[in-house]
């Protein structure tokens, strides 16, 4: 059952008001413009033991993503394709509002939004991940670990997941004559085959204004958010409205345009920090 959250941190009324009045003037409480991201730093291969990984800092928000490759069984309806699994953990060290335990609805929603953005446009070329078609395939586990929650976890997680997939190495695999599968993770044979790149831009709505990359304090004031996943070729690869408020049709169009425009910047950051590395 989903319940209106009650464990939300308290933000002083004065601060709420100043966030509001500043946004109406086109600036943010930390001095940014409405369409400006905080400083983004990507550290690819942060966890060398994982087949792929990346740490993303977006302002004070820190998200670590690790990709593990394992041999498993394909789904019966896609016997010749590898399997993609996305999971998110909001670990309790990341925020005073996070509690230990299985993923809550926010973590599940975040993981599923990212899962769909990667799956639907076929970011990973899963057809190349069959080892013995119908029997053994590669399973790609994308585990999202939120280390510090300072707002906009979805965009940071999506960026970290994409960066981690871009640096994921394929372990060496051999199939014996008896059909046994032997994996040697100490030897790599090329990179994970990718078709596309996808980033997610979350647009926040505050009164009649739209802004990107909200901080945790701004998120407490926002009416609603619209997350738009943008591919490198400018298509919309997924969408999710989040938060209890609403958008007019016109605001949705504006939010999507803002996301498509800002998405280009995130794609160039991926290119600079990860692809050209």
């Amino acid at each position: 059952m989903s319940t209106t959250p009650s464990n939300i941190p308290i933000l002083p009324k004065l601060k709420k008001e100043s966030i509001r009045t500043l946004v109406a003037k086109g600036i943010r409480i930390d001095g940014r413009k409405l369409n400006e991201y905080r400083k983004i730093v990507i550290e690819p291969n942060y966890i060398p033991k994982a087949e792929g990984s990346a740490l993303v800092r977006m302002g004070d928000t820190v998200v670590l993503v690790g990709v593990k490759m394992e041999v498993g069984q394909p789904f019966p309806d896609t016997p010749n394709e590898g399997v993609l699994m996305v999971n998110a953990e909001f670990v309790p060290l990341a925020s005073p509002t996070f509690e230990p335990g299985p993923p809550d609805e926010n973590a599940i929603e975040l993981a599923r939004v990212i899962d769909r953005s990667l799956r639907e446009i076929r970011v990973i070329d899963l057809e190349k991940l069959a080892i013995i078609p119908g029997e053994k395939v590669w399973m790609v586990w994308v585990d999202i670990y939120v280390l510090n929650h300072a707002g906009n976890l979805l965009d940071a997680s999506s960026l970290a997941a994409m960066a981690a997939l871009m640096v994921t190495k394929m372990p060496k695999v051999e199939v014996s004559e008896q059909g046994e599968v032997k994996v040697d993770k100490s030897v790599h044979v090329g990179s994970l085959p990718l078709n596309h790149r996808v980033v997610t831009v979350t647009v926040g709505k505050l009164d009649e204004y739209l802004l990107v990359d909200p901080t945790d304090e701004e998120e407490l004031v926002l009416d609603a958010k619209l997350a738009v996943s943008v591919s490198e070729d400018g298509r919309i690869a997924g969408m999710q409205k989040m938060g209890p408020g609403d958008f007019t049709v016109d605001e949705v169009y504006k939010a999507v345009n803002l996301a498509l425009e800002t998405g280009k910047e995130l794609h160039s950051i991926l290119e600079e920090y990860v692809a050209k590395r």
Binding site: R116, E120, I121, L226, S231, G234, R235, I236, A237, G238, M239, Q240, K241, D246, F247, T248, V249, V252, V256, N257, L260
Partner: peptide
């Protein structure tokens, strides 16, 4: 006013 909007799939703008 739109209160739910999800997209599962790929669309051009």
């Amino acid at each position: 006013k739109i209160t739910l909007l999800q997209l599962n799939g790929v669309l051009t703008p």
